[in-house]
Nucleic acid binder design. Structure first.
Lengths: 217, 217
DNA sequence: TTAGTAATTGACCTTTCGGTCAATAAAGAT
DNA sequence: ATCTTTATTGACCGAAAGGTCAATTACTAA
């Protein structure tokens, strides 16, 4: 919106190239981590001279931050517009389901975040403080309202949220282990339903809720 | 046992130095990852010339493999000697509890494994195939026996195991996120009990079990 | 005492890293 | 047409990476 006044040729090619670079960087950082990825690898993957990357993004750090920022922008944490009046079973079931779908279908971004947090979240600290923490606080308050209204068991809302995050993201971040243990090459169509069903069963029943009727997709 | 016949001075100093190096390497690899750790950093941390490390361990890869092997050797997966005759509630409660204690008190090794699996488990594949997979198979069979005997709900045993692993390890691998979200600097004494309680409540109740009476520690 | 083996380490090698720079090309404004 | 600004890129830089090597030291077995 700031540069909407000039849809020049320059602007267009610049954004095209930046997108090209960011796509390549996202893929490589996700697979190999920050330290495991070099600027020349990104350049080669994006079919762009290395110096051009340094022209658009001032450093490797800058590029990495841009990659993370872009993912965050696309990434809706879900569970929005949830209120104490809602039915916890439906809300949580849908949340689990959407997280499992995300984990199975788009594991790269989840893994990028995971490796970032593993190293102490150097680039995500500020984001967590400014965004995630208040977001979590709000959901936790709703959970607590449900508990107070006897809609569900008295389970610490923070740990309930961590339980949902951990169980669902596990299938993205630790995909290699899951597949090795289950002796599979990749997830198949039935896995999403099977995983969702198992997790939802344990968690919902585990906090005193009933699993909602499932409508055909 | 092969060189037990010669407890020379040489042997002693060799093992002492190897341990020194492995300790330093384990710590650094855990914190910074494989690519983020350099041989000279390890040398400095172990107070040993870099060339000496290359003398004992032929390459960085070799050292890394030795670090992983040593952790695996120390690492008992727990849940051993479990049989269909056991009480699932007690067995699983104790398993969750021991995993939480491990996650909170010794997160470094957990994180080393996590970052290894994140990258596709290049060094752990063989281990998983040879050890973890059969280990899992055995536990899964016991879980299934419990299900068949109506001792617990019919939840896919693999996903039940993944649920236990993910929820407990989360507090080690994603410690940075947990602490940031909860606005803490570190885990305190009450956290282990609180985490154990929350996870055990959800999972045990979630598969139709009762939480065992808790005896004072 | 001495011959032989294992351990130690400073110096050095090649490669690759992130990053700079100057020269050139392309585009927009006048 | 010309001037100014922005993009593009090959060549290059110092630092640090993993690893080698040869010379020296420490130890053991005869």
């Amino acid at each position: 919106m700031s540069t909407q006044t000039k849809p020049n040729k320059k602007e267009l090619t610049r954004e095209k190239n930046q997108t090209l670079i960011l796509d390549a960087a996202e893929q490589l950082f996700s697979q190999l981590g920050y330290d495991g990825t070099s600027m020349s690898m990104i350049a080669k993957e994006a079919s762009v001279p290395k110096a051009n990357i340094l022209y658009y993004f001032k450093s490797k750090d800058g590029l990495y931050e841009n990659v993370i920022d872009r993912i965050i922008a696309h990434w809706n944490l879900g569970l929005d517009n949830v209120s104490p009046d809602d039915d916890p079973a439906h809300v949580l079931y849908n949340y689990v389901k959407s997280k499992v779908i995300l984990a199975v279908n788009q594991p790269l971004q989840s893994r990028l975040f995971a490796s970032e947090i593993l190293r102490g979240a150097p680039y995500l600290q500020n984001y967590f403080r400014a965004n995630t923490r208040p977001w979590v606080k709000q959901k936790v308050d709703v959970f607590q309202a449900w508990i107070d209204a006897d809609k569900m068991d008295n389970v610490d809302p923070y740990h309930l949220l961590f339980t949902i995050w951990s169980t669902t993201q596990y299938y993205a971040d630790f995909q290699a282990e899951v597949l090795l243990v289950m002796n599979k090459l990749e997830y198949d169509e039935t896995d999403v339903a099977q995983i969702t069903q198992s997790i939802a069963h344990i968690i919902l029943k585990g906090i005193g809720l009933k699993i909602p009727e499932q409508r055909e997709a």
